[in-house]
Nucleic acid binder design. Structure first.
Lengths: 214, 214
DNA sequence: TAGATTGTTAATCGATTAACAATC
DNA sequence: TAGATTGTTAATCGATTAACAATC
């Protein structure tokens, strides 16, 4: 689905709501913005405002139908159909994430993000697979990405080649990147990057240590 | 060091500035807010405002002394002295992060966050080590954490035990947690949590796929 | 019906940006 | 000195919260 001009702050909360709905599903058929907010760590007014951007999903005096809202949120987030993902850089972190994602996908039928290709530069890895996901040469990105309709990629390559790999991925049609390399990636405006920069997070956390910060 | 009431939005940018300074160091002795901002992806006015919270580090007409500013930022972030960290949950992700962090620490003398203990529940792992960092039983957290002055922890345990482990860590004196488990952790106000929730990030990215979002 | 809860508007809060006097 | 750039104030922008009429 496609909405325009909705703030990323809103979009970030939708997957959190989705997680709460998944927890609640089966136990309750209906949930109020108050309850949903409490479990998500968000004020009820903000829950209602967030949802109202996309439609009128609730009933006054009652709340939101859990399954209905879940379906709607999944449509909004493009999680109602399989989404093909690649991972570039099968080092120890890449390897771990490949296995992690695969397990997630196997266990949860609602997790539609499917890892379909791995890429690495090392010849000894190419042609092998991890949990049935094949490892290709990075040279093959321009062929394999379009062929498999891959739109999403995880980047776990060393910092010094991250930009280069990103350019190739974007050129091949990737629209969103989860970046673990400690670099700010330059991408066209129609490509989204989420940074999972562990060093930055750890350095930030360090600030809150040592003193009695409230 | 201890400052009060400074927004987390500001703190999050300091490690980014620090990274830029590290890149520039040796090449330039001085850097302007304009140049620092350009490399960090932040407007110059905001760079100056961020730094001004902590002191007057610049010189009019000149800019900021690179090494001096680096030192100051490192003091502010508590990165001027070693900081001991633990990792709980030596699964494939935990294992990868343990190796990653260790390498980072070895290679970069300025990276002072030191991984000193690993914890897991599986008997076959206990007593072994990863790159010389010993694996203890999770039962040992209450003893090992204070003994090693561990203030920071990475949590890579399954979701259903993450809260329980967190409670034990906090009880033992941990002040900041980098959480990879897909759960919202409840902690006292004086403990900071940074979430590295990959599922949430991937689901967010999914939103930006499929339509021509600007 | 009476109580509860939505969707929405207006008020508040906080963060970013623009502008500029001070000064190196 | 003249040009450049800081630290800081005021203006703007955007996001959150509070309040409430509508209505199930």
């Amino acid at each position: 689905m496609a909405w325009k001009g909705i703030s990323d702050a809103v979009i970030r909360r939708l997957p959190i709501y989705l997680r709460v709905l998944e927890e609640v599903r089966g136990k309750e058929t209906c949930i109020s913005s108050h309850e949903l907010g409490k479990r998500a760590g968000v004020r009820p007014a903000l829950v209602r405002k967030d949802l109202a951007w996309f439609g009128e999903f609730g009933k006054q005096g009652v709340g939101y139908d859990v399954e209905f809202l879940q379906d709607e949120l999944r449509k909004i987030l493009n999680l109602d159909e399989p989404l093909h993902m690649a991972l570039v850089g099968v080092g120890s972190l890449g390897h771990a994430l490949a296995r992690y994602n695969w397990r997630r996908f196997k266990e949860d039928p609602l997790f539609t993000i499917k890892l379909v290709a791995l890429f690495d530069i090392r010849p000894e890895l190419i042609g092998r697979d991890i949990d049935d996901v094949p490892i290709y040469s990075t040279d093959e990105i321009p062929r394999v990405v379009p062929e498999n309709d891959i739109r999403l990629a995880i980047v776990t390559v060393p910092a010094d080649v991250a930009q280069e790999i990103t350019d190739v991925l974007v050129q091949a049609g990737v629209k969103a990147i989860l970046n673990f390399a400690p670099v700010k990636l330059d991408v066209p405006k129609d490509v989204q990057v989420a940074n999972a920069d562990l060093s930055l997070e750890l350095q930030r956390l360090a600030y809150y240590i040592g003193a009695q910060h409230p």
